[in-house]
Nucleic acid binder design. Structure first.
Length: 312
DNA sequence: AAGTATCTCAACCGCGCTCAT
DNA sequence: AATGAGCGCGGTTGAGATACT
């Protein structure tokens, strides 16, 4: 719908001529009196529509058509956590960005995460992003299917707690990569770069990924936790670019040795430099509802127990 | 190459606040 | 104090672009 002839109000995409009229009006009177634009017969647009057009598209120094930088993403995520969905307020911290930009960015991000983490009914070749958990040994205290993360309102961090408390020594849990948690085109490809099954296991008090013993991982999550991530060789080291959406993000492989380190925590509260260098802090406070709360809790519903090796 | 899924972004809508009358 | 216009904000929609199969 482009217009409403009954009321003489035009809607839909703006024409260049309309933009020109609007710009002339603002140059003459300033960005105000939006309703007068229509009452003067300059445009058949509502004052709201005029204001929106100016604020979102015509205003000087806008970063139109420019993707959010990592720094901007960091700011949005940090401020959203702080202010909530106060897009206009958040936008004031981002020169050249409008509340609409921020809103759209956040919306896309949410949708992306939701899509990534949702459980497809039937795994297909393209849907190998599901989480799959296998266990080599029975561990009565750990029932992956019954972590009760699907119950509404339950913190997804419960998953970590359940996981940490449930994994028994020498038990192996396999997890298929959440596809696009890491963007294969620009970052670490979980599928190829680690193994086809990233394998989480425990030995003594350590959590391992693949064959690598990675982190001390006591049965219960403690306040301070550091996680190391290692790979066989430099070739396998990913380039982590997204510090927030992606689990293993923000680390530049060129700056890492064979062991990359990352930390659970609230990355958006950390100095960006820490993220960029890829050198995790020594220790980070682990907030109970931090990283994993960014995901829909039902992501963990997909976790399934694979038959024990003895059953295969 | 075609069909489908997903993403991006411009624009609209409704609600609530402020302020002039 | 009540009312209505103007405006700002957050949520939502839909078209076009792009990616994927």
């Amino acid at each position: 719908m482009v217009g409403n002839r009954e009321e003489g109000i035009r809607k839909g995409p703006w024409k260049a001529e309309e933009d020109e009229v609007l710009i002339n009006h603002v140059n003459k009177y300033g960005p105000r009196d939006w309703s007068s634009i229509r009452s003067k017969g300059l445009l058949q647009r509502t004052g709201k529509s005029c204001r929106l057009r100016w604020v979102n598209k015509l205003r000087p120094n806008l970063k139109n058509g420019c993707k959010f930088s990592l720094e901007e993403e960091r700011v949005v995520i940090e401020l959203q956590a702080q202010f909530g969905n106060k897009w206009a307020r958040i936008a004031t911290y981002l020169p050249g960005r409008t509340d609409n930009d921020v809103k759209n960015f956040w919306s896309s991000r949410q949708k992306r995460q939701a899509r990534i983490l949702q459980t497809p009914p039937t795994p297909s070749k393209s849907q190998k992003k599901q989480v799959e958990v296998s266990r080599d040994h029975e561990a009565p205290s750990f029932e992956a299917r019954n972590i009760s993360l699907s119950s509404e309102g339950e913190s997804s961090s419960t998953f970590l707690q359940s996981l940490s408390s449930g994994i028994q020594n020498s038990e192996t849990i396999k997890m298929l990569p959440l596809p696009d948690l890491v963007n294969p085109s620009r970052m670490f490809n979980f599928d190829q770069d680690i193994t086809n099954h990233a394998e989480f296991s425990t030995t003594e008090n350590n959590l391992c990924i693949g064959s690598q013993q990675l982190i001390p991982f006591p049965p219960a999550l403690q306040a301070q936790r550091e996680l190391k991530f290692s790979s066989e060789g430099q070739d396998h080291l990913p380039i982590f670019t997204d510090p927030y959406i992606d689990m293993f993000s923000s680390m530049d492989s060129s700056k890492l040795g064979n062991v990359a380190e990352f930390s659970f925590g609230q990355p958006f509260l950390e100095p960006l430099e820490t993220i960029r260098t890829g050198v995790a802090r020594e220790k980070i406070d682990l907030e109970p509802d931090c990283f994993f709360d960014d995901f829909p809790i039902d992501v963990f519903d997909q976790i399934e127990l694979l038959p024990k090796s003895s059953q295969q």
